[in-house]
Computed example of a mutant assay.
Amino acid sequence: MLMARRALSPSQLAVVQAVRPCFDGPERGLVIGCSGGADSLALVAACANVDASRVLAVVVEHGLQADSLRIADATVEAVRGLGVAAEVRSVHVDTTSGEGVEAAARRERLVALVGDGKRPVLLGHTLDDQAETVLLGLARGSGAASLQAMAPSTPHLAGRLVRPLLGLRRSQVRQACLDWGLMPWDDPMNLDPAYLRVRVRHELLPVLDDVLGPGVVEALGRTATLARHDNDLLERLAADAQRDLVRGDSLDAVGLLHLYPALRGRVLRRWMIERGAQAPTMAHVQGVAALVENWHGQGGVDLPGGVRVHRIQGALVARSGDPE
């Protein structure tokens, strides 16, 4: 049954206007990640309002809850009622990997959604999700790279992730979902205080809103945008600087010393990853930076991935499986 055409409520109109630019690109089709929650259901309904024939809703079933398949099937049925093609993709989440259930589930979900990478994947993240991500990044203390949070469009694997609802509040998107007559599924994990994001959502943000006044979520969203612009520029400058400082397999330590700290750390991290280091932390970057900034003949620095960085004759050299 196709969704009836009728006047849109203000909330519905806002969501439709947010998704409409997604249909302006050259892609023949779009994939929508749909969990059955209010945000993703509203996203599907808005896309159906624009052009239902160009979208495929994918419900990723993680198998983490006893009735997850039933919920996935019910979501597919609701989506098809909007005139949108839908399917379930089941994944296995390794809960023993050490990265945490939430992170492991997110990784598997995105792999399933991207598929062959031929179609952009639309996700239902809102401005509230963005604000939560900024606060979590601030707590990690990892600078602009974390504060930039989620970009409206980002490459992932061989595809692209698009978040058209980042400028809208969660309450507005949920209201749009209800205005379309849809009954969203509320994941109990989103209420479990064992997850840090849940506590940020239900405990920290309300306190900030009460103490600092309304507009905190919007301000955090602006912070993410500004941090993203700054980080994009710094990353481009770091790439240029790295090209000037690479000497074969080594990196010019003397030249690094003349860079601003914001560029030096970025150059080091990029080079370390290229030389085989796996997900180096700020502590690893600082350890290698000490070979540049505080050189007194000390030994090398071990990095994750079995890489060790030495300073030899004014240059940094990275070796795999190198003994002390």
Rank of each mutant, 00 (worst) to 15 (best):
G143D: 03
E132Y: 02
V317T: 12
L191Y: 13
P206V: 03
A104E: 12
G215Q: 07
L212Y: 06
L208W: 00
V84Q: 01
A238P: 04
G306R: 11
E324R: 13
D322E: 14
L113C: 02
D73E: 15
D24M: 11
V44N: 04
R236G: 14
A45K: 05
L303P: 04
A277F: 08
R80V: 08
P304H: 09
C22S: 13
L263A: 02
R140F: 00
E274I: 02
A86S: 12
P323V: 07
L256K: 10
E77G: 00
V15E: 09
D128W: 04
D116W: 10
P206R: 07
L122A: 05
V101E: 15
M189I: 08
R319F: 00
V134H: 05
R106D: 04
L2G: 08
L316I: 05
H62V: 03
A131Q: 10
R197E: 08
T223Q: 06
N190V: 12
R80C: 06
L226K: 10
S68G: 07
R236C: 07
V217P: 02
S90M: 03
P188H: 11
C34K: 03
S97K: 05
P193D: 10
V31Y: 09
A45M: 06
A139K: 06
A219G: 07
Q65F: 00
T223H: 02
G265F: 04
S68H: 05
H202Q: 13
R6C: 02
M150H: 04
E102D: 06
R197M: 02
L191A: 13
P188C: 06
L251W: 11
R80L: 03
V301R: 05
A290H: 10
E218D: 11
G33K: 01
A279Q: 11
A4F: 00
A194Q: 12
V207K: 04
G29E: 15
L204W: 01
G248Q: 05
W295N: 15
G213E: 03
Q12R: 13
C177V: 03
I71W: 07
E99V: 15
I32C: 15
G141E: 06
R228E: 11
P188N: 11
P120E: 04
R163I: 02
A227T: 06
L256N: 07
A4D: 09
I312M: 07
S142I: 01
A176T: 07
L13A: 14
R80S: 09
G137H: 02
L204I: 15
R70S: 13
A239R: 15
L64D: 05
A253N: 08
T126V: 04
G159A: 04
L110H: 12
P304L: 09
H202K: 14
R5M: 10
S146V: 00
K118Q: 14
V200R: 12
A253H: 08
T133V: 07
M1F: 02
A289M: 10
V31L: 06
A227P: 09
V216K: 07
R201S: 08
R109Q: 06
D51G: 06
L2H: 06
A48N: 05
L138N: 00
E87Q: 14
A103T: 14
L196Q: 04
G305F: 11
L237E: 15
G33I: 01
E99K: 12
